[in-house]
Write a protein that binds this DNA or RNA. Structure first.
Lengths: 198, 198
DNA sequence: CCTACCGATCGGTAGG
DNA sequence: CCTACCGATCGGTAGG
């Protein structure tokens, strides 16, 4: 009856551990976080963590996998919908920003800390990430085919630049204060979309 | 007769240490790099490093300060020149990408690892970073005042999105291979600039 | 730049 | 989940 999901839905000990690790990995980085940091956040002694998890890296695997999954589930239905490429792209950007705003630390881990995964976990995570990038690639491709996006675009660079902008949001949004995430999403969507339309 | 610069111009022991640290901090992160990693890259025993440097953090301070300085020196003259705002912005983006391509690891450290600086070094580094961001802010402001950039832009978000895209380049450019940095610079400049013009 | 070492901290475990 | 601990590694130093 256990589920494969991470934190928030599991308010038990494992959820508390995962939630603490997510926050610490996101703010201090994976290599900058010790198991003792996590334990003291949870309010437990370091050794006790291992009654609930296998290893520090298994914790990272779960957070990254679950994190990318949340973005995938939010954005894929939009990418596959029947609207115009520009309309889909706008909604995908807004959906992405909304998932970021839901938990910026999780976004930070999913998109920046996966490179600290060991050899066995790295490839599956990169597959998930590429699958997510491909949602954007396919919509840009559709837009060019339909004649509503610039045909001279280098698709991969365009998408990677867009995702670079989107994934930098958690680094600066909190120190802003004056603007809501929805505002930020709209401004970023405007800026990025205007650049690729015909 | 020693200079305040870092690596490349100093091919002595300090240059070798700084260069190794730059590469390791950029690829594995500051907290993911040990002094023993640096020592073995240089080909020296760990304790020997301290004949040339004060501490691990002093090394980070130097790399970050020098790194931001290189971007500042490349971009500031363009920002202050007499051309149109859009022309300046295009050239600033190209200059930024060129500095990234000169040493992607250094760019990675300058823009992503500064947050691991201690309390005393953090504020000065953030001042340098904000000074660099302000070059872009001032040009966007000029462009709006001159009526050649969209007046509804949120200036700070626009600039931070642009820099987010630019600073993500070192993460993915090397795994590309097919495109040169100049190509990437032009594509990114096109994408970002089209989004903010009237 | 090496030898030899310091105390602190690391991820993780056995046994209860 | 605690007690008690493991060997390994950490940043850094004294003395030459």
């Amino acid at each position: 009856m256990s589920n494969g999901d991470v934190a928030e839905r599991d308010s038990g000990p494992l959820g508390a551990i995962t939630s603490a690790a997510m926050h610490l990995f996101g703010t201090q980085g994976y290599t900058g976080t010790s198991m003792r940091d996590i334990a003291s956040t949870v309010g437990v002694l370091p050794g006790s963590l291992y009654a609930h998890i296998r290893s520090k890296e298994a914790l990272l695997v779960d957070i990254v996998t679950d994190g990318i999954g949340r973005f995938q589930r939010a954005v894929q239905p939009i990418a596959l919908s029947k609207q115009s490429a520009t309309e889909r792209m706008r909604r995908m950007i807004l959906a992405h920003v909304e998932v970021v705003s839901d938990n910026p630390e999780r976004a930070q881990v999913a998109f920046h800390q996966w490179r600290f995964l060991g050899p066995d976990s790295l490839a599956p995570a990169m597959t998930l990430l590429h699958g997510y990038e491909d949602l954007f690639v396919s919509v840009v491709r559709d837009g060019i085919a339909d004649g509503i996006l610039r045909p001279d675009l280098n698709i991969r660079i365009t998408v990677l630049s867009m995702l670079g902008a989107l994934n930098s949001i958690p680094e600066w949004f909190s120190s802003q204060g004056s603007l809501s995430m929805a505002d930020i999403g709209n401004v970023v969507a405007d800026t990025l979309l205007m650049g690729i339309q015909i």
